[in-house]
Nucleic acid binder design. Structure first.
Lengths: 181, 181
DNA sequence: CCATTTTAGTTTCGTTTGAAACTGTTGCAA
DNA sequence: TTGCAACAGTTTCAAACGAAACTAAAATGG
């Protein structure tokens, strides 16, 4: 079926009569599509990780960055996993309880705790990585080589732009008085 | 810089020595990238909607599907917005309180309530749609026409595949005993 | 040095979430 | 009809979340 291009650029300068309102179809709205897709994927993986290993997505991410055997601080984990420090802190305390992670105070700076995976967690890593890569492979197996490269490029560009838009002070369009009743 | 292709297909049949473990870099892992991107975008839009109109993303979605003036039931809204019925129910009760939506019991089936936007919500719709489209335009303004078409195609293919993978009974790879310590 | 600010990480508090249980309604079938 | 399954939507409950407050340690600097 044809792509059904919707009318964009709602001619903001011309007077907006009641009939020429721009329409928006949620199913073609990029933020919606991204949200639904990411949700579907995350939910599937979360169930997989939970059923097989009893871990959550935040815990999986921590295992993923520490899986090579590296040691790092909670702050560094937060950076590398794009989680905030509260999320990381909570995930770490869960992992301490389930003996997935080891924490020892740093010598030079006692604020930073050095975190390392336990052998138990490394065993999970060894098993979960192929599983994760298999899922990724299956999710993209309908894509050609070219399309995979395009996807990579597009995600990078979109993320870069989204980061810009996220941090600017004055957001979208003029913001006047709140909506009149 | 070069794309730094990671090694996939970890030769599952050969014995996995300690050194030839497959590596996984979170920043190149598709589910992670999708999650972070969707999060960035949603968070930005959520702040925008909240600041300007005092509504949440679920409320925005409901406004989006009812914005043309249509009337539909909660269940139908749930389908069209990809939200579950609990989320929809809660969003609707918020919107009833803030007089954004009108609910009347159906005549033929008193289980289904017919929902319509109030003029107040329609006013928000008229203002929020251009804002949303502007954001979308800005998010993609670094993409060529070709790339936008690619994005459309890729998202559709990925969503279709993700839906398949989400609903199958036996997930990824053989699942044996829990991880040995 | 001592006082102040910054940094690392945790805790708290109120809100949001999702799954499951529940209520009320309709359709179906003996 | 009555009894039961299916359906629409709400409520409940426990877990997860985010922002802000907090604790402790290090860096700054007068």
């Amino acid at each position: 079926m044809p792509p059904a291009r919707r009318s964009r650029t709602p001619s903001p300068s011309s007077s907006s009569g009641p009939a020429d309102r721009p329409a928006l179809h949620l199913t073609r709205f990029l933020p919606y599509r991204l949200s639904v897709l990411a949700n579907t994927v995350s939910h599937t993986l979360a169930k997989l990780y939970e059923k097989r290993f009893g871990i959550t997505i935040p815990e999986w991410r921590i295992i993923a960055v520490l899986g090579s055997g590296e040691t790092m601080s909670a702050g560094e984990i937060a950076q590398r996993t794009a989680m905030d420090k509260v999320q990381v802190s909570r995930a770490i305390s869960r992992m301490l309880e389930s003996a997935l992670i080891l924490r020892e105070s740093g010598d030079t700076d006692r604020r930073k705790a050095l975190l390392t995976l336990t052998p138990k967690a490394l065993a999970i890593y060894a098993e979960i990585v192929p599983m994760a890569l298999t899922y990724e492979e299956e999710a993209t197996d309908a894509l050609s080589i070219d399309e995979r490269a395009q996807l990579d490029t597009l995600l990078s560009k979109l993320q870069a732009r989204a980061d810009q838009l996220a941090t600017r002070p004055a957001p979208v369009s003029a913001q006047g008085e709140p909506v009149e009743e």
